[in-house]
Write a protein that binds this DNA or RNA. Structure first.
Lengths: 217, 217
DNA sequence: AAAACAATTGGGGGAATTACCTATTTTTGA
DNA sequence: TCAAAAATAGGTAATTCCCCCAATTGTTTT
């Protein structure tokens, strides 16, 4: 059982020291390098063999998100753990999209850091409980918002047409399917726009999809 | 400062006893009634004054989700805390949709119960950390699935135009904003349709939204 | 029974989008 | 440095979308 070789990237040397001292307490892991920004980190990785990078998002020069992208290309097996003070969910989403395996907050406890490292090493994803809570809260808020959308009463034809509009059909195609004049379809489409208070088909489709008024497929 | 009056609904008397004993340890809250199913709970609420209901989802007769719906109608200010052994996310989503203010797991610690009660009383939403983690993991999985969508490389202009197409702008409006000829906008729109293999704007918008290629708003 | 209303069916016209061309200038990558 | 790609823009035709309006049918209200 070899120990986990970790590289730390953070523009504050104090933070790097802190992380190092916590990691050193555990026999199963060691710090094999330090960098102050993304570019330095990439240079460091060329020389050293490492299993995991613990990095901040906001760094001068090349930021963490960009550096992660490069690392994913050059070393696909590298484990990436974000350790940041940003509870901003956008940062989190971007990190996940960029391929992060874990997202930890600097406010989290020391044991959480060791937890996160071990979890990520097992191939699982680690998310700071704090942020996890926020993501859930955001989901709940979106869920409740949906319940509040004013109810619009649609006729049978309008429902049929709306379904097909969302599928991307043209009025002509719908007219063929329903054996009607394209003009009739146009009328129903106009009604739909008016009833939902939308000014274009794009807005209509976005609205009904976001509010689950029609189910895609 | 009056104490929080709580009614417990669970079909297992043992669970009810457990909840009661935990709540009794806190001076700020008291149990003012117990019920073994949804119907019993509704009858109970007619007589007693209460601030909060702590209830399970699966109960004989009327289940928790249904009971919650009725309670929301009859007593809109009643606080609803779900305490269940189900980590199933569907139960969670249904509970939130039915108007639950908190969702706690029976596996959570005693102090979590007291935490949850206090959090809900403050008007906030409480979600069991365990479940919160699951919801986040599910979101990450969905996020990563989306990343698997074949990568389409867009130019800067195309990104700008796509952003505005999703906003529902017409080519003319986009041309004004970007100080370009509408023809140029049309060209970029055609490129976008071709690159993504879509045949209409509606399909394009659906595709990029579903796959988070652009972020709405 | 007459009036009012909603749903469905259409037409005409103008604006917007798409398709299929061409062409110049600038930027970028190998 | 040389070729490819991107950004710019024009032309034309076909299609599609969005707005005005009107006729028909059935239901509900007065």
């Amino acid at each position: 059982m070899e120990s986990i070789r970790i590289v730390i990237a953070d523009d504050h040397s104090l933070i790097r020291q802190g992380i190092k001292s916590i990691i050193c307490q555990d026999q199963g892991m060691e710090v094999v390098g330090e960098a102050a920004d993304g570019l330095e980190l990439l240079q460091l990785l060329q020389g050293r063999e490492a299993d995991m990078v613990i990095m901040d998002i906001t760094m001068p020069g090349m930021n963490g998100i960009e550096a992660m992208g490069r690392i994913r290309e050059l070393y696909p097996d590298m484990l990436l753990l974000i350790l940041t003070m940003h509870s901003n969910r956008q940062y989190f989403y971007h990190s996940i999209a960029a391929g992060a395996h874990g997202y930890l907050m600097k406010e989290d406890s020391d044991t959480e850091l060791l937890n996160a490292i071990r979890t990520v090493c097992e191939g699982k994803t680690y998310v700071s409980p704090q942020l996890s809570q926020e993501v859930t809260d955001e989901m709940i808020a979106a869920f409740r918002d949906r319940q509040r959308v004013p109810l619009v009463r649609l006729t049978e034809r309008e429902k049929q047409v709306l379904q097909m509009v969302v599928k991307g059909y043209t009025s002509k195609k719908m007219a063929e399917i329903l054996c009607l004049s394209p003009r009739t379809i146009d009328h129903h489409r106009a009604s739909l726009l008016k009833k939902f208070g939308m000014k274009s088909t794009v807005d209509l489709v976005k609205h009904v999809l976001r509010n689950s008024i029609v189910v895609p497929e």
